[in-house]
Design a protein around this nucleic acid. Structure first.
Lengths: 220, 220
DNA sequence: CCGCGCATGTTAATATTTTCACAATCGTGA
DNA sequence: TCACGATTGTGAAAATATTAACATGCGCGG
């Protein structure tokens, strides 16, 4: 098992580990046994020194002169990222985005199992989506406790997001992934990360329009 | 209009401007005319000094002792971000995620108008989703040229993403927003940003599991 | 079993980003 | 019109993160 090496490392390292994991998975299915940091970096547009450094925070996984054993590194990363178990999760919001998440392959593949969908639309409650029950938000507390849910995903309209987040926290959820375009105020030791669909698109709009007739330049 | 001040600034500044813009919009609809960097930071969990510095890269928008005029700053940010115009965009992928994007309010609201959806599923081609035509990928080139599309959104399964990206580049698309969980290789001066649904979730899994029995600690 | 080439792990240097701290200055009310 | 409280804009310091550079060590071939 991976030995701990350093106590502190950049926040961005974790998200890169996730990228490494994904790329290694793909290499593994292609039957590739070994890869160098240089080659992996080429696939991901990340410098090889960055990869070596990221990995070095957690252990010595490679062999000098040889590179990394794909299967071994996968196993280690799976452990480091906490993907060596199933994570039962709930989602809130049975609209288009919520539904898309329920069908999203990437979650199941990594052990994130959506156990229930919560919504307050009476017409939807009681129905199923991809085999998963849509339930009333009023039943969230009991469900979370019974099924020991720790992770909640929010995919409701922005106006409702804060209330849903509060509800999740109240129900004992420990981590929230937020797809609503609002900054949630979370109290307590609950982790919250947001996936923002529009800021990235707006960044693209910025790049496109600045290149034409604006003069600001981005650093680096 | 905003005066240019500095040539270089952090990459992250642009995405924060987008958050400021969104928060100011909400303040504006609530009839709030003026806000301080401190108060805005409180809403967004961002330090006031960060906000002032971000804005300072583009101009002097505030009044000492008073704060920022909400409507004025909105206007300036709209210009800076390139949101003072309509952006015609196309999407690729008419699956669950692609469909969710077509119905996503946040895009239209900012002037990003999805003009067509491309897919290679014959059963879907010719149909509409939210009033928008689903077309064959073979017709992309003509459509992009005729409609002067500069931005493309990829929401296809990972295995197909690279091919779609190549196609978009070939068609003259200048910026790509990628929702597929793969690192795209883009040649030329085409901008590409990815929205990653799983890395954030995996980061949460990491935080949750490290807090229990792992010893690694994150920096800061 | 020695020497070579390759690719790691790591230390040091560089680059970038955030935060601090405070002088500058706006509007208000005496 | 002056003094005060508030809040900006900013230069300098601190904190973070990336990149370079290279000594170290592994496996292979002779």
């Amino acid at each position: 098992m991976a030995r701990r090496k350093k106590y502190k490392f950049p926040k961005t390292t974790i998200e890169r580990l996730s990228l490494y994991f994904r790329a290694l998975e793909e290499l593994s299915t292609r039957g590739i046994d070994t890869i160098s940091s240089e080659a992996l970096g080429g696939k991901l547009n990340i410098k090889s020194s960055q990869i070596r450094k990221d990995l070095s925070y957690f252990g010595d996984f490679g062999k000098r002169g040889m590179g990394y054993d794909v299967k071994y590194l996968l196993k280690e990363l799976r452990y480091i990222l906490g993907l060596d178990r199933e994570w039962p999760v709930i989602t809130a919001g049975a609209g288009h985005m919520g539904t898309a998440l329920v069908y999203y392959e990437g979650f199941k593949k990594r052990g994130f199992n959506i156990k229930a969908i919560f919504d307050n639309d009476k017409a939807k409650i009681g129905q199923k989506e991809n085999g998963i029950q849509i339930m009333s938000i009023d039943d969230m507390a009991g469900f979370v406790e019974e099924n020991q849910i720790e992770i909640g995903i929010i995919a409701v309209p922005p106006a409702a997001a804060q209330a849903v987040a509060d509800k999740m926290v109240e129900c004992g959820i420990k981590a929230i992934l937020n797809f609503a375009p609002v900054a949630l105020q979370i109290e307590g030791d609950v982790r919250c990360l947001s996936v923002d669909l529009t800021t990235k698109l707006e960044a693209l709009a910025y790049y496109m329009s600045y290149s034409k007739d604006k003069l600001w330049k981005i650093l680096s």
